[in-house]
Each structure stands twice: as C-alpha cells, then as structure tokens.
Design a protein around this nucleic acid. Structure first.
Lengths: 353, 353
DNA sequence: TTGTAGGCGTTATCAC
DNA sequence: GTGATAACGCCTACAA
C-alpha cells in the first residue's frame, strides 16, 4: 500500500479508530498503552508506509538530538581519525552528526556556524580553519547557551572549552632530539602560523634551540599549506639552499614523507645527510624507509574526548560555565629517520622541557 | 540583550508593531517588503538574538535541504577523499550533509538508514558495509520516492542508481601486467568478497590468469579486513608459504605498502623477489620505496558524480525511474614495484580486456 | 487505558 | 506593503 501523500499519526488514528495521542504513545512504546493496541498500531504503520517525522518532534520538543561538527577538510588522515572518534561517541550517546568542511576558509566557517545554529544543533565541535582570525562567529552559541567545544586547533587564551595537546612541548622535544643527534641547522616546515598548533610547535622549536645555544634563523622556518605540492616545493627549496640544512622538522608526517622522498630521489641519505622528523604518528611514518621520527598524536581519542565533553554539557545543561581545557598526552617516537648516532631506537623521548 | 526564551518572529512582530508575516517576509529578503521596514526587522532580529528555526520551516515546507550519507568508515583515505567530493557538490547546491559510519556492519547501516529516513533527508548516498547481505533496508526510500545513489560499493544487478568503476577490468589489467612481467604465482589479498569491488577484482584476476593459461589456485586468494594488523599477518603468511609466490596483488595501496614493508624487513627485494601491486593510487603508493604499481581510482570524482546525480534527482523530482549506472574510468599506473623486466615505467597500462 | 486540545515557529493564502 | 489565519506533524497536560 502506498499513497503518495505523507502518512501521519492522524491517518493511522482514523484508520484504527483511535486517537492520535494513542498512536503517538503506541509508536514510542509507552507502557501506558495496551500491548494489543500497540501491535495493531505498529502493523498499520508498517502497512500504510508511515514514517516518523523527526523535525515535527524537534519543533515540539525544542531540541534536535543533533551535534554539529565543523572541520577544515575531510580528506586528511588526522581529521578523519578524529572524526571517527567523534562519531562513535556521538552515536553511542544517541545523537546524530551534521558535518561541514570549511576548506580552510574562515568565510565558510562563518557560514556553516550560522547554518548549524539555525539547524538548532544541540552542540557544536569545531576544528578551526587555517585563516580564521577570531571567534566572533561563535559568540551566538554562548549567547544561546549552546555548548561548544574546540578541538586541536583552538584559540588557547579564551573562555571556550577545548581539547588539545601540548604542541609547544612536542615541538621542543623533537627539536631537542634533533640537536642531540648532532643537528645544528634545522629547517622547520609548518602550516599556518595563525593556528595554535603550528605556532606553538614553532615556539617549542625556538625554545629548544635557545636552550641548546643555537641561534634562531628565521629563514629556516617555512610556512606553507602542507599540501602535496607545497611540500614538494619546500623540499626542492631546501635542496637548493647554499648551506644545506642537516635536519628537517615537519609539522605532519605525510608532508615529511614527501620531503624525504624528494631528498632520496636527489641522492641524499636519510638521516646521514639530512635527518627528517614528522608529526602525528600517521601510519605512513611507519611505512616510510627509513621510518620517520614523529610525535604520537591521539587523534581518535581527541575526537572522543571532545565529543564526550560536549555531550556531558548538552545532557546536563548545567555547569556550562566551568570552562575546561583538556590536554591530552602526546609522545615523541624516535625512529631511524633522525638517528645519526646509531643506537637502539626507543620510544621514550627525552622530555627535558 | 538576551532573554533565555527563544525569540520568534512573533516577538519581533510585537516589538516592532508589525505582523509576523511581514517579519517572515522581511527576513527572507522578499521584495514585497519596504526597504526601511526590512532594515528595522534585521536590526531588531540581531538585537534581540533572534535565530531562524530551520525545522519549523522544514515542517511547513515538507523538505529539509539535507542529504544523508552512509559510509563504512570515515578514517580511510579513499572514503574521506570521496566524502570531500560529495561535500563540495552538496554544499554548492545549497544542501547540508548528514553523515553516519556503519563501521562495516550491516546492522548499523540498517539503523542509520532508518534514522535518516525519519530525519526526512531529501536524498541518500550509500557506500555499503562489508557484510551487508541485501538492500531491503533501502526499499522504504523508493517507496517514498526519496532518491538514492549507491557509490563504489554497490549491488551491481539491481534497479538502484549507482556510480562505480569497472573493477573487473582493473583487476584483469593489473594481473595481466604481473604475468607479463614474468610472475606465475600471484597472491591476491583482498577485502570482503561479499562486496562487488572485491569480488569483481578477484574475477578480473581469475580471468587474466585463465587468459594466460595459468591455473587458478584458490589458496592464493586471501580474504581479510585489510586493516593494518590483518595486512601484516597476511604478509607474514605469504613469507611462510612453502613455494613462495612471486607477486602480490592487494586491493588497496595502504595494505600493499604494509606488506611491502614486511617483505623488505624480511630481506626480500621488490620486485625481484616478489612484485607488489596495489589499488586506489593513494599518495602512499607514490611515497613508498619502490613506488607501487596501482589503479588510479577517482575517489573525489566518484563522490562528486554521485552527489550531482542525487541532487539532480532531488531537484527535478522527475524521471527517477530512469535508473542510471555511471561507470567512471580507472587506469593502471605501472611503477617500480612490479617492473621485473626493466624498462621505462609508463602509465598506459595494457588494456587487452 | 484512551481521548481532547493547544502549541512548537514558520510559511502560504487571502484579504486589505 | 502589510495583516490575519490556517496549516505542517507531533507531544503532553489534563480530562474521561
């Protein structure tokens, strides 16, 4: 049976000679309703092609059971790992997930933030775009008491909830390690310095150099978009530097692997001629030859943590004032790509920070 | 200004001494409304913290402007590339995207298909879970005339819209290439044979062997989940085979790279001791050493194509009967990992299929 | 255990 | 140009 017209609880009610309210109750397993009646209701619903109207309920109940997520892009190892974590947590809490990608553009982020607000998401998780200048477009969320959690890419000095790692320490650890391996001229290839994750890693890099009494050379810091093309270009530029660097610290593994490939194709030996370190502990860091020293970055757990934090806020609707920063642990993973002084690789990175 | 109570067009109307209908018109730039009035409306809306209620409109207009997407997992290179394509197309057409991941389980797929139906998505894009046995859970969509497009992982012999590549030809091409390089004992490592993508590649593999008069040996086909662990185990098993294979054809590049790494660690030379071919043309196939022969698989374009097809169906609501299968082109990329006979690598694979 | 009635916030129709 | 009013489909007091 299939009329093209939408079947509502009123149609079921009429068909069964019951009241709409009874139908409504029957459909949601309300114990007040007679078992037999419920069966008839279910059968008729199936038969007449009834489908529940979620947003009629949303309108009535003033909530959507939907969590919004805004990320810079979907096709990145780190982001998709994080999203997987978010999704698991959200769905097991009975929420749905609405996703948009800003494509690294603030202007899209603003647009989507507004759209999600209008969609009445119960909460929002954000990983900032590369060029976002401020968080004004999220003020409306606080104004309306909609919980908001920033994850990974955040503004560190504000009043929003956030989940992140200590990027400065990570940058410090990895740079110290390189220096300890005898490197003196270390290039740092990184992403938009407007984002804390990159800015902080750079600060860690600087501080480590300072601690080791190595002069900071600004021309050795390369800010790019970390795309495949940008990484290849950067590697080429490094090859052409007059005084060739003896190490490269890249803010993500994929990019590090690309650079390493360019170096190898140019005949350089890793790590003898140039040491290479990455970031994120992506699978590629373990598949590259040599394997890449990196920072183990708990993407999925960050996602889960952010989602759990958000859901707690949404569910209890209480102490939303107690803004929390959650800092997850990251860890230096030393591998062959930086071991100039031969020794057993180990995963307990020096942590003299 | 910020009352906790939700501000509606009625509140604005009262505040401005106008009718709700005028407010509604003003907010959506209806030309019928006086420019001055509109300005006052906008100002008041901003001032009073009004936010538009999307699902009240949905209820009224009987459509949501939302497209549902169900994928097996988010954290996979291929899937996230495809999603990026879908998202771009969907958003530029003015729709939002609701995503769920089935985690490769039919049971979740069923659950999410139903949830999206209740959410009144205007259309649905699906990439099937590994163990989905049939498409019964999507029948309700056709029943309610909701457009549905399957992408990549599909059932090939049914009446649904689909976007895919010719997996059999790809499997045939890659296997033929291996044989032409002198390989005779070729292992095929692949995913769930319940899915067309894997089943078809295997058929291509078999047909190529037959065409070259090589006996098909069932023990050389290994069906796994293609996870990191499963791939490593598979590689180990291959190493321990009595009569060691001279080639390996894996259904995805990441997995191929993992196997190659295991082989190299065991002291084998690629391709001399064993040739390795992958699938998807993921970036890792270009970063591995040696670079991996693979099939160029247009993930982003598949996503875009599926989304565009869906949106056409949603927008015109017309010829939904004309079920279409769209087959995109894929291409053999020959690289060092399979070149036993030394020659210039080329990308125009033999296509004797 | 079931029924009645009002409202959630918007838009469309018709009137003025 | 603006206003009044009736849906859209569901839920929940309250009543029976």
């Amino acid at each position: 049976m299939n009329n093209n017209k939408t079947v509502t609880i009123y149609d079921l009610a009429e068909h069964l000679n019951l009241a709409p309210s009874t139908i409504s109750r029957g459909l949601q397993d309300n114990p007040a309703v007679n078992a037999k009646t419920r069966k008839r209701i279910m059968a008729a619903a199936q038969d007449m092609g009834y489908r529940f109207n979620t947003f009629a309920r949303n309108l009535r109940q003033q909530r959507t059971n939907m969590i919004g997520v805004i990320v810079p892009r979907l096709n990145s190892y780190f982001i998709s790992t994080m999203l997987a974590g978010i999704e698991k947590e959200i769905n097991s809490a009975g929420y749905d997930m609405l996703i948009s990608q800003s494509l690294e553009l603030e202007q899209n982020e603003i647009k989507y933030a507004k759209a999600m607000l209008n969609n009445r998401v119960d909460g929002l998780i954000v990983n900032l775009a590369a060029n976002t200048r401020n968080l004004d477009h999220f003020r409306e969320y606080t104004r309306h008491n909609i919980p908001l959690v920033f994850v990974d890419r955040v503004f560190e000095n504000d009043d929003f909830n956030k989940v992140m790692i200590n990027n400065r320490k990570a940058g410090y650890d990895i740079t110290s390690h390189l220096v300890e391996q005898g490197c003196r001229r270390i290039v740092h290839l990184t992403g938009s310095l407007m984002r804390n994750v990159y800015q902080e890693r750079k600060l860690g890099y600087q501080q480590a150099l300072a601690a080791k009494k190595i002069a900071y050379d600004e021309t050795l810091v390369m800010e790019t978009e970390l795309t495949e093309e940008a990484s290849m270009e950067a590697a080429q530029r490094i090859l052409q530097m007059e005084d060739r660097p003896d190490a490269l610290f890249v803010s993500n593994d994929m990019s590090a692997a690309i650079c390493m490939k360019v170096f190898k194709d140019a005949g350089l030996r890793i790590p003898e001629d140039i040491a290479v370190a990455g970031f994120n502990n992506e699978i590629i860091s373990r598949l590259s030859d040599p394997m890449i020293t990196t920072i183990n970055y708990p993407g999925e757990e960050m996602g889960r943590t952010a989602a759990r934090q958000l859901i707690n806020l949404v569910d209890q609707k209480s102490s939303g004032d107690l803004t929390k920063s959650i800092i997850l642990k990251s860890q230096l993973m030393v591998r062959e790509s930086t071991l100039k002084i031969k020794q057993q690789p180990n995963n307990d990175g020096p942590s003299t920070y």
